[in-house]
Design a protein around this nucleic acid. Structure first.
Lengths: 155, 155
DNA sequence: AAATATTTGTTTCCCCGTCAACAAAATATA
DNA sequence: TATATTTTGTTGACGGGGAAACAAATATTT
């Protein structure tokens, strides 16, 4: 197994592990809210004029899934819809006050995770940090190009 | 947003993207086989004396899920079970010849993905490579310790 | 050796996300 | 302007995976 393969595989494993571990804390702090719901709330809080299509792209899910998820979030009073005067088709979402509470708890939790893992990051220097950031950025752009090349559409 | 957060988030996004993109090639080359099935075959091919419990840990899934998945793979004739003379409880899996075919196709596909992304890795030097590998390893160990600390069990 | 606890695998019920078909609105084309 | 195409969101059928209860085998304790 070469280094490239090793690195990708180890990273995949690391992330599986991280997601799995963080899920527990999440479920503890945000009882009654599913990870997917929280994740969706996070995106709605961050994306301007978030709609079903944008959320689907951002969360790598289908529009159908987001459609149902958002409906549930509306029922729970966490988000609400709004439209623009010159477009009767697109429906946007924004957080309600209650939704913002969840959003903030999630942010806090994120900070907690960061704190938990800080020791790992303290062991690398600025140089390495930037190097990794650049690497990820390049990789991401490379994949964007590949996706474009393949002509894959969402759904 | 600080660098640590940035790095994690970008990595997460990168992997989401990668998984999503690779899924298409997978479904093309391995028609009739679901990603989870292929992933499971991969693990059975790599883990010695793989059983439901080991696979669940390796794939970060529940034993129930693996139990069903393995049953399906048996029905399809991709894997078979075996036991050890002194243990009537544990049931191990191994690939059949047909399963090995899938395994190998998957491996080939992996190489194809590597080839596709090689350009990105060519842009970093040995030093950076090793630095990242060490980082992932440390991070992984750190999470192992955290998991242990939390006393989380697999189902 | 007997009783208790743990490990292993299975099954049922349920929820979540995908797929595919669909309607409505917006955009492009004739 | 009228028609065709694309975009956007929704719905229902379906399948995959989790939670929990369970039986059987093994390990541990008494």
């Amino acid at each position: 197994m070469n280094k490239q393969e090793q690195l990708i595989m180890n990273f995949r494993d690391l992330f599986d592990k991280m997601i799995w571990l963080n899920k527990y804390k999440m479920e503890d702090s945000l009882k009654g809210y599913k990870p997917s719901e929280v994740h969706c709330i996070e995106s709605i809080g961050k994306i301007v004029d978030a709609n079903v299509t944008k959320l689907a792209k951002s969360l790598y899910m289908t529009r159908g899934a987001i459609s149902k998820l958002s409906k549930k979030l509306i029922e729970k009073g966490l988000i609400e819809t709004y439209q623009k005067p010159d477009n009767k088709k697109e429906i946007y979402f924004r957080l309600t006050d209650q939704g913002k509470v969840i959003y903030n708890i999630h942010e806090e939790l994120h900070k907690e995770f960061q704190e938990r893992d800080r020791v790992v990051f303290e062991q690398i220097n600025e140089e390495q940090f930037d190097s990794m950031l650049r690497f990820v950025e390049k990789y991401s752009k490379h994949l964007d190009a590949e996706i474009k090349k393949q002509g894959i559409a969402i759904n």
